[in-house]
Design a binder for these strands. Structure first.
Lengths: 191, 191
DNA sequence: GCGGCAATTTGATCCGTATCAAAATCTGAC
DNA sequence: GTCAGATTTTGATACGGATCAAATTGCCGC
C-alpha cells in the first residue's frame, strides 16, 4: 500500500505481518506501527480518499480486500456493520492517542517494555502463545517506531536479558518474567 | 467530558477552547491536544461506547451536542453523513498518527514551532488572523502536550523571540516570521 | 495603584540517549 | 560446512533536555 494512492479498498491482514510507515522529507521512515493477522490497514484514508501511509509486508503475507464500492453497499444495508466500522475507527484512534501519550512520557526501557507487552496482548488475542515472540521487524524498525535509535533498543533488550526478564536470541524473544515488564510500565501482565 | 463515562452524545465545540487529556496512574495529565471551534470531541468513544479521554474547557465555551440515538437515526437515512463521519474519524486518526511520528523525531524547538504552525492553520481555517495567537493554555499544558517540560517550552519561546521570529508577551504570541518557523519544520508557512 | 499569588522566565547542573566506532553474531547462498 | 553481507551488540563520548532553584512578570482582587 502506498501513501497517496487512491483508497479503493479496505485491507485486512490474514496471515503474516507488515509495517505501517510514512516517508519523511529526508527520506527516513516514520514507523507508525506493525500489523498483525486480523488487523485492518488504510483506515486513515477515509480522511481524504487517499491512503495516508505506506504499508509493506515484513514476511510472506496474505490479506483480504474489501472494495470501497462494496463497503458502501454493505453499510447501506447493515446497521451492525455501521457500528462496527465506527468501533474499528474509534479503536484505531484511541490506540494512536494512547501510543502518542506514552511516547511523550516514558523512557527508553519503558517504551521497549510496552512494545513487548503490546505484542503479547495482540498475539494472545489471536491465540498465539504470548510469551514466545518472533519479531518479524528489525531493531531499526522498532527504534523508528519508538522514537529511539537502534542502539538504544538493543541496549534495552540487553538490560532485560541481564535482569533475567527476557531470553533474547536475535529476533526470538522469550518473556520469562512478564510481571516484571508489566510492573515497569504500570500495567497488569498479559496471561 | 470524563474518560470512562458512557458515550451518549457527540460533542462539537462552537466557541472557546478546551483541552483533551487522560490521567496517568501517577495522577499527571497526558495532554492529547487542544480543541478549537468547529472541532469534535469524543470520537475515540466509538471504540468501547465510553469516552476515552477527559475534556475540560480552557475558557468560557459553548458547544453542540448530538445524542447517539439521534446520530444513528441520521446515519440510517443519510449516506452523505455516513461518509462524513468516516471522513471525520479518518482525519482524527491521520492527525494522531502524524503527531505521534513528529514527537518521535523532532527536537524541542521543532515541536514548539510545529505547535504554533498547527494553531495558525487551524485559526486561519476558522477565519481568525493566523499570526496573532492568544494561547488559552498554560506553558505546562503545552509542555505535557509536546512531551517536554514547561521550562523547555519557555526556553523555546525565548529563543524564537531573540531570533526575532516571535513577539511573546505572556500568552499573546505574534508570529513575525512565519517562514522561519516553517523552514525549521520543513513545511510551507500558513498564509 | 497596591499587594499577593500564580505563571513564566532564567540560571546551573546532571542524566539519558544520540552519535560515532568497532566487534560479534546471525542469515542465506553456495 | 563455509563465506560474505547484513544485523545486532557493545563501547566511549557528547549533547539536549530534565531537574532543581531562584528571580521576574503578569494577573486579579481590593
Amino acid at each position: 500500500m502506498r501513501a497517496g494512492a487512491s483508497m479503493d479498498a479496505l485491507l485486512v491482514v490474514r496471515s503474516g505481518s507488515a509495517k505501517r510507515f510514512t516517508l519523511t522529507l529526508e527520506g527516513t521512515e516514520q514507523v507508525h506501527g506493525f500489523v498483525l493477522p486480523g488487523e485492518a490497514v488504510g483506515l486513515e484514508g477515509f480522511a481524504t480518499g487517499r491512503y495516508g501511509c505506506e504499508v509493506s509486508a515484513l514476511e510472506p503475507l496474505s490479506y483480504c480486500r474489501v472494495p470501497m464500492r462494496k463497503l458502501e453497499q454493505l453499510l447501506e444495508r447493515l446497521p451492525g456493520l455501521r457500528r462496527e466500522m465506527l468501533r474499528l475507527l474509534g479503536q484505531a484512534l484511541d490506540e494512536a492517542l494512547r501510543l502518542r501519550g506514552e511516547l511523550a512520557e516514558t523512557d527508553a526501557r519503558g517504551r521497549v517494555a510496552r512494545f513487548l507487552a503490546d505484542l503479547s496482548v495482540r498475539l494472545a488475542r489471536r491465540g498465539f502463545p504470548p510469551h514466545e515472540i518472533r519479531l518479524s521487524m528489525s531493531r531499526a524498525d522498532i527504534a523508528r517506531h519508538l522514537g529511539l535509535t537502534l542502539e538504544t533498543v538493543s541496549r534495552a533488550f540487553g538490560t532485560f536479558k541481564r535482569e533475567g526478564w527476557l531470553r533474547v536470541r536475535a529476533r526470538n524473544i522469550s518473556v520469562l518474567r512478564p510481571e516484571a515488564l508489566a510492573a515497569l510500565i504500570g500495567a497488569t501482565p498479559c496471561v
